[in-house]
Write a protein that binds this DNA or RNA. Structure first.
Length: 356
DNA sequence: AACGCGGGGAC
DNA sequence: GTCCCAGCGTT
């Protein structure tokens, strides 16, 4: 029962467990708010395993806020390519410029001020406040939600505000005021390594004796989420236009849709691949041009199933003759310098093997 | 409050 | 296939 939970004792056990079992991760060796900020944004909705290499590359390319602020959005997105949730990279760049231009290059030092930064929400503000400044703001991420909801036997949906608020209150009671930074690392690490979603290691858990979910044998049903995701299907014909001088047409995605800020070929979205591609919207008549159709590429996103097929159009003249201000003309051998969605990157990889 | 945003991994 | 991951901005 929750009244039996001794916050101080639980907190101490969690921290002690961490000191013996912590992974050696690069962002744990610094109190530099910039570095910590980068790590936290990279790791949002991302596993440590997937984010680690991106973090290292990012810090190497942009070692301080000034370097990041002076980079172009394309450079930032290129480094982010393949990591997903690209608004994180755009907001990161926006906030770096904001800090340099409006805050004299000085990182905010309070939770409240951190929260005002674009891309920084309650979790990230708490993380920076605790890891950089040792302030006692508890982090509530997926790991913490899982650990606390099980420990306290919270069966209510954890994806609604009242439950989240209760979990945050419990975390606030738990957090060590001597070493809030270590406690925050510890409770997340516990969730990530011990109190895992599937097959948690209760036998190695330092607080399993206090775990209500374990006591009531309801671990598998906690945390409970009420929202269901609906996936739609989308079919993309991309027109890869290659002219007689080694150039092709691309453009930057700017509409409110997936992959904003990344690049694409001229695109025709259809209701299914039983519909034939029709390049007339970019001024081509399919019958006049030597065309090749790629295999169908598939990618699953959180809310969408994407299908893509690439129609190669080989032009007997120069693409410079095509007048459209939205288009960017790129040499074929420079295409890899742009940031592409995964599904187009897969096409490039296929292309290098099968065609050229 | 509900929704959409990527990609990889565990099971 | 399902669900998750150092969440957030928008509507």
């Amino acid at each position: 029962m929750s009244e039996d939970h001794n916050y101080k004792s639980l907190s101490k056990k969690i921290v002690n467990w961490y000191k013996k079992n912590a992974r050696n991760l690069p962002w744990r060796h610094t109190t530099d708010p910039y570095t910590i900020w980068i790590s936290e944004i990279v790791l949002q909705q991302t596993t440590v395993q997937q984010g680690l290499e991106y973090y290292n590359r990012f810090i190497k390319a942009f070692p301080d806020v000034n370097t990041l602020a002076n980079a172009s959005e394309d450079e930032v997105l290129k480094l982010w390519e393949g990591l997903g949730y690209y608004s994180r990279a755009r907001n990161l760049h926006f906030t770096a410029k904001h800090i340099c231009q409006d805050l004299d290059g000085v990182f905010p030092t309070t939770y409240k001020e951190l929260l005002k930064l674009k891309g920084v929400g309650p979790y990230t503000a708490s993380a920076i406040a605790s890891f950089a400044y040792n302030l006692p703001h508890v982090v509530v991420d997926g790991n913490v939600i899982r650990l606390i909801s099980r420990l306290w036997g919270i069966e209510e949906a954890v994806d609604i505000k009242p439950t989240l608020s209760r979990i945050a209150e419990i975390g606030t009671q738990l957090i060590s005021h001597q070493e809030p930074s270590v406690f925050n690392q510890a409770i997340m690490e516990m969730g990530a390594l011990c109190c895992t979603y599937k097959n948690p290691s209760c036998d190695k858990c330092p607080v399993s004796a206090s775990c209500v979910a374990r006591h009531n044998d309801i671990i598998a049903s906690i945390p409970y989420k009420s929202k269901k995701i609906k996936k739609s299907k989308r079919y993309f014909y991309y027109f890869h236009i290659i002219d007689n001088e080694g150039y092709t047409i691309i453009h930057k995605r700017s509409d409110k849709d997936i992959w904003q800020g990344l690049y694409k070929f001229p695109l025709q979205e259809v209701s299914g691949f039983d519909v034939d591609p029709n390049a007339s919207f970019i001024g081509f008549n399919n019958h006049d041009i030597d065309t090749y159709k790629s295999r169908i590429f598939k990618q699953t996103l959180t809310h969408q199933y994407i299908h893509a097929q690439f129609c190669i159009i080989k032009l007997p003249y120069s693409v410079a003759e095509i007048d459209n201000p939205a288009y960017i003309i790129s040499p074929n051998d420079k295409l890899s310098s742009f940031a592409w969605p995964k599904i187009i990157d897969l096409y490039f990889k296929d292309l290098s093997i099968t065609l050229f």
